[in-house]
Design a protein around this nucleic acid. Sequence first.
DNA 1: CGACAAGTTGATGTTACTCAAAAGTGGTGG
DNA 2: CCACCACTTTTGAGTAACATCAACTTGTCG
Lengths: 238, 238
Amino acid sequence: MAEPSSDLPEGGAAARLGMLAPLDPEERHLLDRARDLKYQVAAHQIIVEDGCPVSSPSILLSGWACRTRVFLDGRRQILSLLVPGDLIGICRQSRPVAATGAIALTDVTLCPAPMPEHGKGGLAEAYARSGALEEFYLFRQIARLGRMSAYERIADLMLEIGERVSAVLRTPHDRFPFPLTQETLADLLGLTSVHVNRTLQLFRRQGLLDVRGGTVHIRDLARLADLVEHRRALVSEA
Amino acid sequence: MAEPSSDLPEGGAAARLGMLAPLDPEERHLLDRARDLKYQVAAHQIIVEDGCPVSSPSILLSGWACRTRVFLDGRRQILSLLVPGDLIGICRQSRPVAATGAIALTDVTLCPAPMPEHGKGGLAEAYARSGALEEFYLFRQIARLGRMSAYERIADLMLEIGERVSAVLRTPHDRFPFPLTQETLADLLGLTSVHVNRTLQLFRRQGLLDVRGGTVHIRDLARLADLVEHRRALVSEA
DNA sequence: CGACAAGTTGATGTTACTCAAAAGTGGTGG
DNA sequence: CCACCACTTTTGAGTAACATCAACTTGTCG
């Protein structure tokens, strides 16, 4: 069962933020100490209440989470996905006009995100970059839902998750942990779980992609990327 | 032809920002002076190049704009809509990791957004609130595209635009300017223009909503809101 | 073993897309 | 004023993608 772990490696939080902006030794130390304050939240539990007054921002150390919107009739849409290393609840302004809460998709462990004193320095910069990335992924999610077929949505999402997760977890880029059920995947992609299931089988039969047993195995990265490339924004990208 | 104008009333920029946070007299003066520097961009032209180094942030004084993603095969998705009073290109961090450009949907006039010196004060707060609101609308857009039918998407969007536009333009909340073509509306809603057309006709026949000739007329706000209400977010939940 | 969640399958229904063309609209120049 | 053009809106017929409903199977864990 050598399943790739969904845990951030030792020092991973610092590592991920260090990828976004250079950090002082003292900032790294701050992050290491924050880790001693880590806490757990069980799957399906609320991490941050919606419309909360920012409590304190956190770093997701292990496990996966998301922001969701639930309709009265039971439909639900996952707005954004949070993977290990991501920040939760960083608010740029003093009072949040309209935040969206976060809930745990699997058991998760978190630690408080240390706040830089004067809003300057590498750490603040890393937080800001992280926020910008998050916005970028929101845009990508909109384009996925608005203009891609089920088939393309899955390909695009798996490539995105691969990018986001493999760097942080130090897994090979073509094989990484994926602890979500097909039902959850459906809520993320705006589809039904039945249709997700059939589409995943299609990918398997074609030898492109294997999503099974908590792991994603990208079998033909080139062809998968081509699928999605033909929709790649002309528009430049960071 | 008493069509509601799409222009911000005199002092409108200050008015809109003043709705978000209290402004000093001097801040209001700054905004008034910025208006003297206003400039125009024609419909379909780029306002902010994608991946730009932030140039300078602007305030949209009149006309409508959007952020788009265009696929290689010609499909396009409007990511977010910008209406008079909205800010363009406010970047919280020193270097944008991944911005998305903006293009004009109609002829627009803009003016530079005055920058508060030390990043404090009512103006900075108003900018931050505006950014948070923008994020809120992104979430709403995702929920629309992911989990609503064409019929619901249109109802929800028209209600959103009504909220955003009528306050700023001082138009009655049930009748406001809407200068977008059905094709553009389709790109915003992730539909085809043909289907948008048929759905708009349905709304008209039902006496709920009339989108025609550059104006939206909400004929039955209560029933329209009900349509969308049944999908109103309870928000967080497992 | 039994129970419960997750994944899988089949049959059927509906929403929304595609293609193609007609009718309306507004602006421009002769 | 009319003819012409480009663009937008509208209409119809056929189709494809995805949803729905309802089992049935597999796996996991106590």
